[in-house]
Write a protein that binds this DNA or RNA. Structure first.
Lengths: 329, 329
DNA sequence: CGGGGTTACTTACACGTGAAAGGTACGTCC
DNA sequence: GGACGTACCTTTCACGTGTAAGTAACCCCG
C-alpha cells in the first residue's frame, strides 16, 4: 500500500538501460533498433515489476485519453440499451481504448465529469441538450449522437402497421409516451405509424401519449382503452412505443376483463427481457442493437480520423411473433 | 477544431500574471494572498477562454484521478442495479469526483481498462475473481465489494418465508439460479430460506436451481412445478431468487392452467420494473438500493482516507404485497 | 533608520510518459 | 585512411498542472 506503483524508470534501472530504451521496447517501435538481448531484459523487468503504464501521463503526453464515454440518461429498463453498451464495450476494447458509461443525473454534472474523465470521444444514445453540445464543443470532444432519429427510425412503427394489417386489423391505436427526453425516438415512430396507416388506406389511427418512462400507470391506460372502445368503430389492435408500454397495456386490458388477442391485439417494440413472459406473450418488433453499436463506433472512429465516415445507418428491424396478436382475425 | 484547448498558461497571459497566480486563484487557496483586483482579472480571463483544467495533468500531478469505477458484469435486467448506479453517481459527484460504470465482458479486459481509466477506487456489485483482485492490488487501486454477501444478505429470503407463513403456507418451494456468477447472492438466500423454514418448524422446503440469468426457460420451470405438484404433499407456494425468475414461474403456472395465487402462490424479490405489470401482479420483496449505494460510497471514502470505516451494512428489506400471494389461504 | 513581518506576487520543480535529436562504437567503401 | 552509414543506446525536451520556495515592495514599531 505504501510502496508506489512501479514506473518505467524502475524498469530502466532494473534492466540497466535508459528510460527511452524501455519506452521503445514496450511500445514495440520498429523505427528504433534494439538488440534482442536488451529487449528481453526490459520485458523481463517489466513483467517482474508488474508494470502498468500511467494513464494520466500517457494522456497528458499524447494529448488524448484512451477513454470513450457513453452518455446514458434515463431508460434503465431496456435490454436494448445494455446490449448496445455491451457491444460497444467490445468494439472499443479492440482499438486499445476503453468504453465507460456515465449515467447522467442532472445537466450540471456534465461539466465536472468531462473535466474528470476527458474522453477522446463521447457517444450518446439519449437526448443531449444544445447547451451540452456547446460544452462538448468548447472542450473539443467530438460527440456522436445515436442515429435513431435518422431516416429509418420510423421503420419499427411501420413494421407494426404492416404486421397488424396482415393480421386483418384496420382500426388501429398507437400508445406512445409524452416524456420529453424520449420524444427523439417517439416522434418519428408516431409519424411513421400514421403515415403507414395512410399508405395502407386505413382509417386514421387513434394516437395517445401517456406520461413518461416508468410513470405510466395501468389506470391511465385503462381509461384510454375504454375511450377507444366506446367509439362507434372501436380499435381492434394497439401498437405501443415500447414493450414496457405494451406490458402496461396488456395489464390494463386484462384488468378490463378483455381477452388478448381476441378482444384486443397488443403489439410492443424492443423484444425486451420480459416480452416472452407476459401472458399472452408479447408480439413485438426486435431492433438490432449490435448493428447500431457498430455504426456508432464506426462514426466515432471517423471523428478520431481513423476511418472514413460510414454510410448512414439503416435501422434493422423484424417482427417477433408471439401470442398477443392472433394469427388471423 | 484546430485550435487547442485553452490552458492555465493562456489565462496567465491574458490576465497578465504568472501561471502560479492563476492556479492559486482557481483553486481558491486561502494560504495565499491574492489582491481582489487580480483575482477578478484571472477569473474573467478563465471565463472568457472557457477554461476547463486538463484532467490528465491534474491526475498526474496529484497522483490520483478523480474517477470512481463501478464494475458491473451481467445482470442487465435488474432495476436495483441501475438504482444503485444512479445513487452512487450522485454521491460521488458531491465529492467532486465522477462515477463511471464499466460493463465487464471478459476477464482479460480489466487490465487495459484499468490502464486507461486509472480510477482512484473501484466498486463492484458483482462477482470479482481472485486474479482480478490481485491485479487491482498490484496497481494499488482499492476495491470495494458489495456487502450483499455480508450478514444480512439472507434477510430477503427469510422475509419471503415469514410472509408465506403468515399467509398460511407450510409446504414451500424455492426457485433459484445455478448461474455461477450469481451464487454470491444466491447461496446466502437459499441458506436463509431453508434456515427460516426450520425455525418456523415447517417441513423442509423443496429447492431447485434452474440455469442462469436470462437462460431460464418457461419449459424447465414448468417441469419443476409439475414435479413438485406430483409429490404426496405438493408445495403451495414458490419463492424465487428474483423477480425475473418469478415472472418465469408465473408464466409456467399459467401455461399449466393453474390459478395464481389460488393453486400456487408465487413470490419474487427485487420489486423490479415489471413486477406490478404481471397478472396477477407480483408480490415481492423490495431491497434498499439507495442504502446500499450510500454504504458502498462510505466504504470507498474510508479507503480514500477521507472517512472512518462505516458500520457493517444491514440489508433493509420489506414486503411489497400485490396479488400473487393471496390474503389468506 | 533598520529589522521583521505582511502582502502579492514569480520562479522553479515534480509528476510519468513518448519521442526527437544526439552520440558512440563499429564495419564498409573508395 | 578518412568519409560514411548503421546498430544501439542516451540525453533531453514537452505535455499542463499544483505548489514549495523565493523575491520585491510595503508597513509597523522601537
Amino acid at each position: 500500500m505504501a510502496t508506489p506503483r512501479s514506473t518505467s524508470t524502475d524498469i530502466a534501472r532494473l534492466a540497466g538501460v535508459s528510460r527511452a530504451t524501455v519506452s521503445y521496447v514496450l511500445n514495440a517501435r520498429k523505427d528504433q533498433s534494439i538488440s534482442e538481448a536488451t529487449r528481453e531484459r526490459v520485458l523481463a523487468a517489466a513483467r517482474q515489476l508488474n508494470y502498468v503504464p500511467n494513464a494520466a501521463s500517457r494522456a497528458l503526453r499524447g494529448g488524448l485519453s484512451h477513454l470513450v464515454m457513453l452518455i446514458n440518461s434515463g431508460v434503465p429498463w431496456s435490454t436494448n440499451v445494455t446490449e448496445v453498451e455491451d457491444e460497444l464495450t467490445r468494439l472499443v476494447a479492440q482499438s486499445g481504448r476503453s468504453l465507460v458509461v456515465w449515467r447522467r443525473q442532472g445537466p450540471d454534472d456534465l461539466v465536472s465529469t468531462l473535466a474528470n474523465l476527458e474522453p477522446c470521444v463521447a457517444i450518446s444514445t439519449s437526448f443531449i441538450g444544445d447547451d451540452e453540445k456547446a460544452l462538448l464543443a468548447t472542450v473539443k470532444i467530438p460527440l456522436v449522437e445515436s442515429d435513431l432519429v435518422a431516416p429509418g427510425s420510423d421503420i419499427p412503427a411501420r413494421l407494426q402497421v404492416e404486421h397488424l394489417v396482415a393480421r386483418g386489423h384496420e382500426r388501429l391505436g398507437y400508445l406512445t409516451t409524452s416524456e420529453p427526453t424520449l420524444q427523439r425516438f417517439a416522434t418519428p415512430r408516431t409519424e411513421g405509424f400514421v403515415a403507414a396507416c395512410a399508405e395502407f388506406k386505413l382509417p386514421e389511427p387513434r394516437v395517445a401519449a401517456v406520461p413518461g418512462g416508468l410513470g405510466v400507470t395501468v389506470e391511465s391506460v385503462k381509461e384510454q382503452l375504454r375511450a377507444w372502445q366506446s367509439e362507434p368503430r372501436p380499435v381492434t389492435a394497439v401498437a405501443c412505443f415500447n414493450d414496457f408500454h405494451a406490458a402496461v397495456c396488456l395489464a390494463a386490458a386484462t384488468d378490463l376483463g378483455w381477452w388478448v388477442p381476441e378482444d384486443l391485439a397488443v403489439m410492443g417494440l424492443d423484444d425486451d427481457i420480459f416480452a416472452p413472459l407476459t401472458r399472452p406473450a408479447l408480439t413485438t418488433v426486435k431492433l438490432d442493437p449490435h448493428g447500431l453499436a457498430r455504426h456508432l463506433w464506426a462514426t466515432a472512429q471517423s471523428r478520431l480520423h481513423e476511418a472514413p465516415e460510414p454510410h448512414p445507418y439503416v435501422m434493422d428491424a423484424r417482427i417477433v411473433e408471439r401470442a398477443s396478436v392472433s394469427e388471423t382475425v
